[in-house]
Simulated scan of single mutants.
Amino acid sequence: MLCIVLLLLSPLSWRMGEVELPMQFWWKQIFLVVLLISIFYSNVSFIVPKILLKGKNYLYLLIVILGAVLTYGIIIYFEQFIHYPEKMHQVFNPDKPFDPNRGRWLPGDIFQLMLYMVSIGLSTSLALVQKWQKDEALRRELDRQRINTELSYLKAQINPHFFFNTLNNIYALTNLDVKKAQEALLKLSRMMRYVLYENQKNETLLSKEVKFIEDYIELMKMRMTEKVKLTIQIEEPKEDLVIAPMLLLPFLENCFKHGVSSQQESEILIKLEVMGETVFFETRNHIFPVNPESPEAKENGIGLVNTQRRLSLLYPDKHRLKFGKDESSHQYWVNLTINLA
């Protein structure tokens, strides 16, 4: 497009009066177009990738300078071949004899060398941008593969962690109430179906995740005594929002693992609100010491650590997670906000 504007359309605007430009003039313009296009794509396809991007800067600079000299020589040879100077002299100076030894028109030569430099500059810029885009696409692909691999590893850690705790609870129920244990197994089978099918996806409906949370809470309630005051405030999502599966489970596990005591009274709060495309999740529970010899104590909070990592990978700059211990009430609290837009 640049060649067409500068070399073909531009001369049409400065034709003086009724002066008819000779055919040799248009032959030269077309030749310059072909020459500059050849220089442009040779630089993009070969010289920049094979020389400049390989770190051979001085060799590239030498080739550009030699290319300018060669281009200038080719233009002069072509002009002599088609008798361009003579024909142009006959048009603009018909009353004067043509002198073949007369010097060249310097502004015209400078303009042609500037066209060469513009072609080199644009083609070099294009080649560098293409290289940057290719490297950026490769980097994104590597990041995507790394994130998918890491997320698969993290989810693989969370699943055994969840089943380990749940099966321990059912095992404890078998010694107290066989019927409750059977009901717990039924709920667990429904939850396993969710884990097997939904957890293999990157996203699931928030409504399904909420149903999974409710089933888990019902399962935990079966082993709780009257000493535990359980407050559940879960809002059913109205829109078809999607969320990473089993993202909230580790927070619930920690509530029931650390917030339940068979000897002391305790409170557990689980709250989930949905406002537009934002989910607000909150938990509060008392903290009771865990048997240091139990498997739970040796896990060192693997579920929470992995969930923090999943949040940073899946919802960068779209989530806010705060947690801590309230010394006055001896309660552990978690506040999580996720923008699911």
Rank of each mutant, 00 (worst) to 15 (best):
K96R: 14
K221G: 04
S38F: 13
L336M: 06
T166Q: 08
Y41E: 07
D215P: 02
Q112R: 13
S125N: 09
F25M: 14
R102L: 12
L205D: 02
F251C: 04
H89A: 14
D99G: 04
M1C: 11
D215A: 06
S207T: 05
L122K: 06
Y153E: 02
E282C: 08
L167T: 01
S261M: 05
P94F: 10
I75G: 00
R320F: 11
P49H: 05
N291A: 11
I65R: 08
Q264W: 14
L151A: 07
V64L: 10
I47V: 10
T278H: 08
K131H: 12
V178F: 09
Q24G: 07
F288L: 12
E203C: 06
L185S: 04
R146V: 03
L35E: 08
P250F: 02
Q90K: 13
L53M: 11
F111E: 06
E277A: 09
L59R: 08
V279M: 10
D326M: 07
H258A: 12
L196C: 10
L113C: 08
N101G: 05
H319F: 09
R146P: 02
T149S: 12
Q112P: 00
L59K: 09
K155G: 03
F31Y: 15
L205A: 05
I158Q: 07
H161E: 04
N159E: 11
K227M: 10
N335I: 02
L167Y: 05
E79G: 05
Q80L: 12
F40T: 05
K187C: 03
W27Q: 15
P97T: 03
R140P: 02
N339A: 07
N335W: 12
S329K: 15
L321H: 13
A184Q: 00
A297Y: 14
H83L: 11
T71L: 02
V290F: 04
